[in-house]
């Protein structure tokens, strides 16, 4: 794999269309996460304290808003996309034998899909929206 000699990040692939797409998607999700993940960390640690964000608080405050549910679901998709592509690059560097690499990467993709399903399930099904509707 080719690297930028200065930043040592992956150089833009010159060959296959798939790898070029991976390269662009990594950077596109990076820009989204620069805003989403940093503001999420700031809200959960600087605006509120971890001690006050109980399950009840999430139901009745944070996720009683469609805006914040959408924000969190978009962040979930971006972070799973970005981390799956990043870990794919890391694991491909570590595991070089084709069979082992295929197994490890399959595991990564299955884990990513499971996390997407569980994360989406809670965003979409957690009661709390009726609190917003009642206001």
């Amino acid at each position: 794999m080719a690297y930028n000699p200065i930043t040592r990040a992956r150089a833009k692939p010159s060959g296959g269309r798939g790898e070029t797409l991976v390269w662009y998607l990594t950077r596109l999700s990076a820009v989204a996460l620069f805003v989403l993940a940093l503001s999420h960390f700031s809200i959960t640690h600087f605006v509120f304290d971890p001690s006050e964000q109980t399950a009840e608080w999430i139901r009745e405050n944070r996720w009683s808003s469609l805006v914040w549910r959408s924000f969190d679901w978009l962040m979930l998709m971006m972070v799973l996309l970005h981390s799956a592509l990043g870990m794919r690059t890391v694991l491909s560097d570590i595991v070089t034998r084709p069979r082992a690499r295929m197994l490890v990467l399959s595991g990564l993709y299955i884990l990513t899909i499971i996390l997407f399903v569980l994360g989406s399930a809670v965003v979409f099904t957690l009661p709390g929206m009726e609190v917003a509707a009642a206001r």
Partner: peptide, 24 residues
């Protein structure tokens, strides 16, 4: 960059599961 990326990824796995528990 790699070490911090792997570290954040490990937390993301934990964090999606703990938020899933808010409902479950």
């Amino acid at each position: 960059h790699r070490l911090s990326g792997i570290g954040v990824w490990l937390f993301i796995v934990l964090h999606v599961l703990d938020i899933w528990l808010v409902g479950a």
